[in-house]
Structures are given as C-alpha cells and as structure tokens.
Design a protein around this nucleic acid. Sequence first.
DNA 1: TTTTAGTATGCAATCGATTGCCTGATTATT
DNA 2: AATAATCAGGCAATCGATTGCATACTAAAA
Lengths: 345, 345
Amino acid sequence: MKRQKRTTIYDIAQRLNLAASSVSRALSDSPKVNAATKALVLKTALEMNYQQNAMASNLRKGNNPTIGVVVPRINQNFFSNIIAGLEEVTYKKGYNLIICQSNELHAREVDCVNALINQHVSCIIISIAAETGDHNHLQQVLDHHIRLIQFDRVVEELDTFKVINDNERASFEAVTHLIEQGYKRIALLEGPQDINIFRQRKEGYLAALKNNGFPILEELMCENAWTKELGAVATVQLLNLPEPPDAIFASTSDFSALGVLEVATDKGISVPDALGICGYSNEPFTEITSPSITTVDQYSVSMGKTIANLFFQEMEVFEHSVEPKIVSIKPKLIVRKSTQRKISS
Amino acid sequence: MKRQKRTTIYDIAQRLNLAASSVSRALSDSPKVNAATKALVLKTALEMNYQQNAMASNLRKGNNPTIGVVVPRINQNFFSNIIAGLEEVTYKKGYNLIICQSNELHAREVDCVNALINQHVSCIIISIAAETGDHNHLQQVLDHHIRLIQFDRVVEELDTFKVINDNERASFEAVTHLIEQGYKRIALLEGPQDINIFRQRKEGYLAALKNNGFPILEELMCENAWTKELGAVATVQLLNLPEPPDAIFASTSDFSALGVLEVATDKGISVPDALGICGYSNEPFTEITSPSITTVDQYSVSMGKTIANLFFQEMEVFEHSVEPKIVSIKPKLIVRKSTQRKISS
DNA sequence: TTTTAGTATGCAATCGATTGCCTGATTATT
DNA sequence: AATAATCAGGCAATCGATTGCATACTAAAA
C-alpha cells in the first residue's frame, strides 16, 4: 500500500480553478485576495483536510521557527523545569522545541548540535556536558549564523548570550548562613572544577570563609562528590578526620546532600545540632527529608522563561548585530531545618 | 547587516566545476560517483563549512525523521523520564524529538497536535491531557497518515498503538498487599474517572477487595484527590469518619500519598501501625520520607524506550498496514515501610 | 471617451537537495 | 576493429509553498 498523498495548495487550486499563488495568499490572509475567494479557499481547505507543509514553507521563507535545546539530562529536575519554562514561552510564539540530551558526553553533545545546525533552527540553547572538550561545535553554531544561548553550565570564554545563576553569590550566602548559625568547621563537597558553576560555587565558599576570618582548610574540600553515593563516601571520609567538620555544604547537588544526611543518620549524628547540611538546587525532596534540607533554589522554570524571552526580545530579529548579554539570576537560599540550630550564635 | 547565505551544494559544485547532483551523490556516498571525486567533494565541503539543509532534503525525500511528543507536563517525573527514554532510542536512529506540553488543557493539546501535523513528523506520541474533550485531533493525525502512539493516558476507543501500564493489575497487587498486612478498612484516593488510568486503578482496588471478601464502602472512596493538598484534605475527611480507614491507597500519585503522610504525622497517627499508606509512581522522594512510602514503579524510562522501539520495529516502514498493538507493561509494587506492619497477619 | 488608479489573480522563479534518465568516455569482449 | 558493457557525471524535474512581477478587469477621474 502506497503512502497516500496529502492535499497541497495545488489540489485546492485545481478544485477551485485558481492559481496556487492565490490559494497561498488566501491562506495567509493576504490583503491582495478578494474576501469572497478567501472564504471559499478556507472552506475548501477545511473540506479537503488541508494542512500546510511546514517544511516547504520554511524552506521557501528561509527560516525555521524552531529552537533546539541541548541539556545533559532531560529527566533531571533542574533541566526538565528549564525545558518546561522554555516551552511555556515558545509555544505562545508558535515556535517548536527540539530537545536533545548529551548524557554528559561531549561527543554526543557535538552530534546533537550538528543535527540542530542541519535543521536550520533559529536558536540553540545549551547547557554543556560534564565531559568537556573543545568547543568548536559551538563556534560552528555561530559560524552558521544561528543564535546561541548558553545557560547554567557555560563556556565562559565564548562570547555568546548567557543566562546563569549567580552561583558565587548564592554559595557565599549559604556559607555565610552556616557561619551565622555558629558552625565553625565547614566542609565543601565540590563538583568538577572545569565546569564554571562548580568553580563559582567554590569561589563563593572561599569568599565567605575569608570574609569571616575563617581559615581555608584543604582537608575539608572534597572534589567530585557529585551524586548521593559519592556524597556519602566523602562524608564518611570527612567524619573520620581527626578534626571532623561540623557542617557540610554539598555545593554539587541536593543528591549529594542527601548522601550526607543518610550517613549522618546512620552514624547517629544529630542534624543540625552536631552537623549542619546545606544542599543545592531545591529538589522537591529536600522539603521532605527529616530534617528538611537547607538548599538553594535556582528558579528553574522562570529561568527557562527568561532564556526564551531573551531570544524573542533581543535576538529573533537582528537589525544590528546585538552585543551578547549576560543575564545573571540571583538564586535564593532556602533555609530549612538541617541548618537551623537551636543554639544560635 | 544581511543574514549571510550558508553554503549549499551549488556553491560546492561551482567551486569544483561539478554538477550539484554529483555533489549530492558524493555527500550521500552514492556508488555512482568516483572515489577521487567523492574525497574531493568531502574535503571541499568541510573547507566551505557546509552543513546540509535538512528542510530541503526532507521536503524532497518526502519524510521527516522527527517524532513529536505531547505530554501534559514536561517537568513531571514520569513524563520527563518517558522523554529521556524516548530520546535514548531515537537519538541512535538519527531521529529528532519535538516536545510539546499540553498543560493538561485540551485546547492546547489540539494546538500542539496540529503543529506537529504541519511539521509532517513521522510519528506522534501522546499522553492525553486531564481536561479531555473530543478526539478529532487524534483522528486527524491518522487521516494524515501519521503514525500515532498513545501511552499511559489513552483514549481507549481510538484504534491506535498503545503502550500502557497494567494499572489494574498493579492496583490489585497494591491493595492485596495491604490486605495481607492486615489492614481491614482500606480507603482509595482516586483520580478523574474520565481518564483511563484512574478508572483502571479503581477497578484493581475493587477487584482486590472483592477477591478477599471485603465490603465495598462508598464513604472510603474519595474522588479527585490528585495533588498533595487535595490528598491532605481527603485524609482529614476520612479520618473524621465514625469508622476511619486503617489504610489509604493514594492511587493518583505519590504526591497525594505525601499529603496523607503529612496529615497522619501531624495528628500523631503512627504509620504504618495505625495507618498504612501506599502511593503510585515511585517518585524519588518516596524513598526518603519517614517512613518511606510503599508505591508502584512504572518503569518510566524503559517505557519510553519501549514506545520508541515500537515505532521503529513495527511502524517506521509500513509494508502492510500493521494491526495496532497494545503493549502492556506490568508495573512493580515497591514495598516500603509505610505499609509494613510489625504485627503481621 | 480616454486615462488613471486600483483590485484581483496568474505566471514563473525560487528555496536546497534528490533522483530518474540520458550521454560521453573508458574498458572489456568477441 | 567493432560492439557491448560499465562507469562517471550532467540535465532537469520535483518536493510544496512563497513572492515579485505582469496582466486582466473594473471603477473612478478627467
């Protein structure tokens, strides 16, 4: 059985003894076509079950109202919220969203980006994979005159639009809060330092310590404590130190913080009294654990909207070559029980 | 500043003094072109930074290796997992994914579906919105010879491929488990009954009661207890009954179950001893609450993969008009502390 | 009545890649 | 040496919609 052909403007034109151009104009409500004809065409189109072929239209018009999104993982709270936020805005503008996930792999990210370039999307919105490599693929995007917005995890040296969280500031506030609660030895679980956001969070941590005259202790900083499991491992190590920390800032994620909490609970260490815990991301579960976990909310859905708006307001048309802008969103510290000591400073 | 043109096969052809057709063939590695020429074209294409125009190619070839996905909410654990699973498979096949969310609204769902028809996608994968209406839009999909797969929340009377969970079975097992744990008055928090999955879960509940000779008590069934807040409200009502339930099966979601748990904790009702709680979906947080919540895992990521594979194996080519198939996945009851009584039956 | 303006519509090129068919050149076959 | 076979490449139509330009027709102005 052959694939039956779909009705085109030519079919409509033939049926009505019109030229295809008139049908096209009628359908796009051009003023150059008579009202009666317009109505007739519309009616016939409906009858014949016509649906425009977007590929043909976009090809001819030389633009594709589609935005490509590349994220490390689609099913991660932060990213799926970003996507939801993006969709909310792009939907209203009649744009489509093509979603790809890099699975944190550089090669796959490159693949996805190339596929999106092929698609001639109007814009690519990307948060780079943990496995970083060169960024020729991003340069390629620019070379093909496709707008590029980086968010959250960005390649800083690349001169593009960026929407980021003020990680350093948030981190600074979180650590300051811990200090205010009277914690004296504050450990840091940090992420891969070749990713900007983790560098920034470390900066914030260091700045807060300095600001309060606290010493910087190498043994209290654990690299790569990224997942719940790694967070737990790091915690065990930290607690075995001759002088263990009295607070742990899991700057990588709430999952990591959860690992910390589980180890503490296992060992019968009282949180927040003997150990303060602060996570990052405001995952839904942080509200539910006992005690609930202090964390940093990144306004992810609204960040998605911001990104989309940035495209529509600044980049969709580019009359003049716009100067890439960096939008920084200040995340919010959500203080919960895991850091609220009864004894106060 | 005008948008600079991207290099096309014509540009390459001109540079090499070849016909565009030869360039096209060379790029698609056709045997009709000399190896030396092929190499030359490839090299030149690279030099000139050529990227194929997928719109033109797809238009000519009359197919678009893209799959459209419509879900109620992108940032809901179940759906984002489905999408991740889909992407995993479609990526390998070189297909793109266009994602839309209906926000549980019928009108918006219709909009999304139409946009996808315009795009001439190869397949539409959909889970319908809570706000149901007619399903002309789905019929439209079929009329335009676009493959359609419904999953999870499906319109049963529409003869399409479907991938569903065996909700009734899972629900039956959950309630049976409660009975085995010695609970005697088991309440049900149910979802909108015009959505198939919620009907099925109720069926399973009823079947399990009957199967064990338990009476069906209207006052123990609460409609529309869908969110955490509604779950809490329903729980308060249930607990105020002259004969309150000793177990609550929140068949709508884990969020609902969480609402139940919070009310119980507030009122100092011991879970699982005085009140058993079972949720649905295996949201990550169910493992973390105290006590952890018994729930039903839907294998969402793997379900996504199943859906995509269904398309590639059965529908991508349709030699013969294939008979729509229904794939039913048996979810798994995850027994946790919220239903494990020390006193056993 | 002729000119002008304006309206509605048609013609044909175009977007970029693909592909059936044809041709010229080279090699193989008898 | 003549014919057939093979290879490499070119020509031109095609996918479906859009759009600049041309044209036929009507109505208004001179």
